[in-house]
């Protein structure tokens, strides 16, 4: 099974990182994330104290919005091209495929966000301690965002206007991650990290099964 999943993982990762035909890929969500962090100081003014107090929340909102961007190319193109059918014929379960895809999606979107976070922390004048908490929060929270993204992408694959609907569905599901992620940056908010990790684990545990059931139901 691992032997069959490895080529699928490398393909998914290449496709999600570089995108098809050089379009899409991991760069777009990353630029979007940085653009939001850059816009915010323009909107609220250069008051460093205000920025430092609200900046962490902005980073989390930006991360959530960046997670929504690649939703429509996470699952839909492969269902459309018949790849999931071919994998099913080879006895590879949808659950395994989606678990692999969550991992590939996280590597192509969560990790770049963590690399870009110091830059946006600078734009929002967060101090080193806050940046450290943001990085830790992103490490714990982005796997959950990736899992929610893949679940929603599988649910909306094959629907008309699936892309717009996917964004609308993902936002409420990601609210707990946002609350605990941003909350962990408040004074004495370290407990938020544990709850953030718990939410992530729930999303990770549910994603392969919910998404797999959605893909099978979509065949009918």
């Amino acid at each position: 099974m691992i032997r069959k999943l490895w080529p699928i993982f490398t393909r998914d990762l290449a496709l999600l990182t570089r995108g098809a035909q050089g379009r899409g890929g991991a760069v777009l969500p990353l630029l979007f994330f940085l653009a939001v962090a850059m816009l915010f100081p323009f909107a609220v003014g250069p008051d460093a104290r205000l920025l430092a107090r609200t900046g962490a929340g902005v980073i989390w909102v930006a991360a959530l919005l960046a997670a929504i961007l690649p939703l429509d190319r996470l699952v839909e193109p492969d269902v459309e091209a018949g790849l999931f059918d071919q994998w099913a014929l080879r006895g590879i379960s949808e659950e395994a495929l989606l678990a692999v895809r969550v991992l590939a999606h996280w590597l192509s979107f969560g990790v770049p966000l963590m690399l870009a976070a110091p830059l946006s922390a600078g734009l929002l004048s967060l101090d080193a301690q806050q940046l450290w908490t943001v990085e830790l929060g992103l490490l714990l929270g982005t796997p959950g965002l990736a899992a929610i993204g893949v679940t929603i992408a599988a649910l909306t694959a094959g629907m008309r206007a699936g892309a717009a609907l996917g964004g609308l569905l993902a936002i409420p599901m990601a609210v707990p991650l946002l609350i605990f992620g941003a909350g962990s940056l408040q004074p004495d908010g370290e407990g938020g990290l544990a709850l953030l990790a718990a939410c992530s684990l729930v999303a990770l545990a549910v994603a392969p099964f919910a998404g797999g059931a959605a893909i099978r139901a979509g065949r009918e």
Binding site: P7, R11, A20, A81, G82, L83, D85, L89, R90
Partner: peptide
């Protein structure tokens, strides 16, 4: 199975797209 869905990645050269299935 061969149906109307090709199940080959459109952006890849044919050799690579076929090689993907051979690796599986």
């Amino acid at each position: 199975l061969a149906d109307e869905r090709l199940a080959l990645d459109g952006h890849q050269p044919l050799a690579q797209a076929l090689a993907f299935w051979q690796r599986i």
